[in-house]
Computed example of a mutant assay.
Amino acid sequence: MSEVRVVQIALLGEAQVSVTEGPARRVGGPRVRMLLALLALEPGRPVRCESLIDTIWGDDPPADPANALQTLVKRLRAVLPHGVAVEFVAVAYRLAIDADDIDIHRFVRLAGEGHELLAAGAASPAARTLDAALGLWRGAAFADLTDVPELCWHADRWNELRLDAIETRADAYLSLGRGPELAASLERELRLQPLRESLAARAIRVLAAGGRQGRARVVFESTRHLLRAELGVSPSPELARARDELDWLPEYSDSRLAVRRTGSIERVRDLPGIAALPDSALPAQCQGLGGQCPRWSFRPFESE
Rank of each mutant, 00 (worst) to 15 (best):
90 A>G: 09
25 R>P: 05
49 C>D: 15
12 L>V: 03
47 V>L: 13
75 R>D: 09
29 G>P: 01
12 L>Y: 09
54 D>N: 10
60 D>Y: 03
56 I>F: 09
48 R>G: 13
23 P>A: 12
18 S>K: 09
36 L>G: 00
22 G>M: 10
92 A>G: 10
79 V>L: 03
38 L>K: 08
35 L>K: 06
32 V>D: 04
17 V>A: 04
83 G>R: 00
21 E>R: 15
73 V>W: 02
71 T>D: 11
70 Q>T: 12
50 E>L: 08
52 L>S: 09
25 R>V: 15
80 L>G: 00
78 A>T: 00
49 C>R: 14
73 V>G: 00
81 P>E: 08
20 T>H: 11
17 V>M: 01
40 A>I: 02
58 G>D: 04
82 H>F: 10
43 P>F: 07
15 A>S: 14
58 G>C: 01
40 A>H: 04
96 A>H: 12
44 G>I: 03
82 H>M: 12
77 R>A: 06
90 A>R: 14
94 R>G: 03
90 A>M: 13
18 S>G: 10
91 V>N: 15
71 T>W: 03
70 Q>S: 14
100 D>Y: 05
86 V>K: 02
20 T>A: 15
64 D>S: 11
29 G>F: 07
67 N>V: 13
31 R>C: 12
17 V>S: 03
65 P>V: 04
72 L>Y: 02
88 F>M: 12
96 A>C: 11
24 A>F: 04
30 P>G: 11
13 G>R: 01
44 G>Q: 06
41 L>N: 07
27 V>P: 00
54 D>V: 03
38 L>A: 10
89 V>K: 04
94 R>K: 15
46 P>T: 07
36 L>R: 00
77 R>C: 04
77 R>T: 09
80 L>D: 04
66 A>E: 14
83 G>H: 02
55 T>P: 03
19 V>E: 13
48 R>W: 13
65 P>W: 03
54 D>Y: 08
48 R>A: 15
25 R>K: 14
78 A>H: 06
88 F>A: 13
78 A>P: 00
51 S>I: 10
28 G>H: 07
100 D>A: 12
19 V>H: 07
35 L>T: 08
100 D>W: 10
13 G>V: 06
25 R>W: 09
89 V>F: 08
66 A>D: 13
58 G>P: 00
